[in-house]
Lab assay of single mutants.
Amino acid sequence: SAVVMEEGSPGEVPVLVEPPGLEDVEAALGMDRRTDAYSRSSSVSSQEEKSLHAEELVGRGIPIERVVSSEGGRPSVDLSFQPSQPLSKSSSSPELQTLQDILGDPGDKADVGRLSPEVKARSQSGTLDGESAAWSASGEDSRGQPEGPLPSSSPRSPSGLRPRGYTISDSAPSRRGKRVERDALKSRATASNAEKVPGINPSFVFLQLYHSPFFGDESNKPILLPNESQSFERSVQLLDQIPSYDTHKIAVLYVGEGQSNSELAILSNEHGSYRYTEFLTGLGRLIELKDCQPDKVYLGGLDVCGEDGQFTYCWHDDIMQAVFHIATLMPTKDVDKHRCDKKRHLGNDFVSIVYNDSGEDFKLGTIKGQFNFVHVIVTPLDYECNLVSLQCRKDMEGLVDTSVAKIVSDRNLPFVARQMALHANMASQVHHSRSNPTDIYPSKWIARLRHIKRLRQRICEEAAYSNPSLPLVHPPSHSKAPAQTPAEPTPGYEVGQRKRLISSVEDFTEFV
């Protein structure tokens, strides 16, 4: 048969007729292969192709491409040299491709048809291009793949890379869960390890502090508590009631339409708007009261037996805890006409967050109470924005700035309102402590230090009264110190430094 060459192609190359033996071998191979691939376009007849790359030819070592076609129900084999250009295909004639002069020997084609199974398996396991790669995943090629499931790999992101949580363990979102698992493993320790309690022994800490320079003076030496005195035992138990972190309780009120001037209507609300609910979820963490331990979680007086509701929101960081007394989460009882059960919590909070959804101005004093010092007013606006402002009593104007209003988005509203309420509550605590000038409020841990110092002074006084020969370590507060001759004046800087060093040991009130 003659071949018409394309323009620009090399000279004529004689194409030899395939021997009958080659056709029989390739026909047997075509019957084993699956003929249901995917359909081509209507211009080209339905056909199945599979590209198999052999590394070497037997005796020649030339890479070839073998295409199996099922045109007219008769499979045909096409061998081509890759750099050459194939002729145009037609549905009426068999596929013809040019070969190099080196394939002119018909014996070479017979060798190609009689490829060993080793070469076929190696060509099938190679990388296939384009559409033949999808075909190689079918059941027909499963014989050339190794048996057994593939090893499982770690989760992959859409980009093909490992997620960040699997790369950096410290930033993994499941870090707290692993800590819980470690605690569970520790709890399952053997009885021999049960006595080993991690941490620092208080006796060891005391020993280090006792021999430090801070205890060089007799006034700073630790003293032993009497065991037989019940009054001192009660004082030590009272110390446990003062937490070592700051605590805040903040009221949250929802004002519906037409309720801006009605205290009873505001306290009777059992739910609010959708934006109000989203605002609550951002204030803190939802907790169930019956599962809380009052000595570990500050509840601000809420009952854990269901008297004040089942849930509330709280927030904490390293040095403070805040609980929100939310009116809509507290039960509304029919027998309580004046809502006294709610007001006994909300009316005693220094700061209230008022979500004013009424469309009218909310005035300070609508919720009557002796300790309502500051109101954080949240007014929802259009386009997911809110107006946040402050209202306070006249005696609080020096501590709280009420002249600045803020426009905040719904997303950042819980954070801004919480921070403003916490700052206002700190100012309210300082303002409330002014009624007792001898006990200015600095912080909870300073209050613990003052309680310890008062307890020490009482013990020293009782020891001096029981044994008059012992001198008083600290003179009583009601006694007057003996007159001392004025010492020589020293520079102001040295006096300030000495006073600062003494105050650092005794108390921190002056620095606050």
Rank of each mutant, 00 (worst) to 15 (best):
Y465Q: 10
C385K: 03
I242T: 10
G365Y: 04
D318H: 09
N436Q: 07
C460Y: 10
E257A: 07
L346E: 06
K368C: 11
T277R: 15
Q497E: 14
P380L: 00
F508M: 15
H338Q: 13
Q310P: 11
I377Y: 02
V297Q: 15
S262V: 03
L346R: 04
M330R: 05
R454S: 15
L239K: 09
A464L: 07
S229K: 07
D246L: 05
L449I: 05
R498E: 15
V378H: 00
D291L: 08
A487T: 10
L238Y: 11
L289N: 15
Y274D: 04
C385Q: 10
H431F: 12
R448V: 06
L286N: 08
P476R: 09
V374E: 01
A483T: 10
K221Q: 15
K444A: 08
Y441L: 14
C305F: 11
T332F: 08
T490M: 10
P482G: 12
K444G: 15
K333T: 13
W315K: 02
V297R: 15
G272L: 01
K221G: 14
P222Q: 09
R411P: 06
Y254H: 00
I250T: 01
Q293K: 12
T379I: 04
D317A: 02
S244G: 14
M420F: 03
R411D: 13
L346D: 06
T490E: 13
I250H: 00
Q293G: 13
A265E: 06
K363Y: 09
E461R: 11
N436L: 06
D401T: 04
V505R: 15
K249L: 07
E397T: 14
D246T: 08
S403L: 04
V416P: 00
Q237T: 11
K290V: 11
N425A: 11
K342P: 06
I319V: 09
E228F: 07
K368N: 15
G258F: 15
M426F: 07
I326A: 04
V335K: 12
A265T: 04
L390N: 03
R285W: 06
N356L: 00
K342N: 05
N356G: 00
D395W: 05
G272C: 02
Y245S: 06
S477L: 09
N220K: 09
R458W: 15
A487I: 12
S244D: 15
Y355D: 00
R498H: 13
H271M: 12
M396H: 03
F371R: 14
E462V: 08
N386V: 02
Y493V: 14
S268H: 05
Y355Q: 00
Q321W: 14
S479R: 10
S433F: 12
L239A: 09
F373S: 11
H431E: 12
N269C: 02
D240M: 03
L289W: 15
L501F: 13
T509A: 11
E488Q: 07
T277F: 15
S409N: 04
H451E: 15
K296T: 07
S433M: 08
V378Y: 01
L299V: 12
F508S: 15
M330P: 04
L239Q: 09
S504R: 12
P414E: 00
L399G: 03
A265M: 05
D308Q: 14
G300A: 13
N348P: 05
M420W: 05
C292V: 10
K480R: 11
Q230G: 09
C392T: 08
W445C: 07
F415G: 04
P442H: 05
Q321Y: 13
A417I: 05
S260P: 04
Y355E: 00
P226N: 15
S477P: 12
N227K: 08
E257Q: 09
D240A: 06
K333R: 12
R275L: 01
E397A: 07
N261G: 10
S260D: 04
H478T: 15
K333P: 12
K221D: 15
A421I: 01
A322I: 15
V354R: 00
R456L: 05
S219F: 06
V374M: 06
P243W: 05
T485L: 12
E397I: 07
A421W: 01
P437K: 06
E494K: 07
Q457V: 05
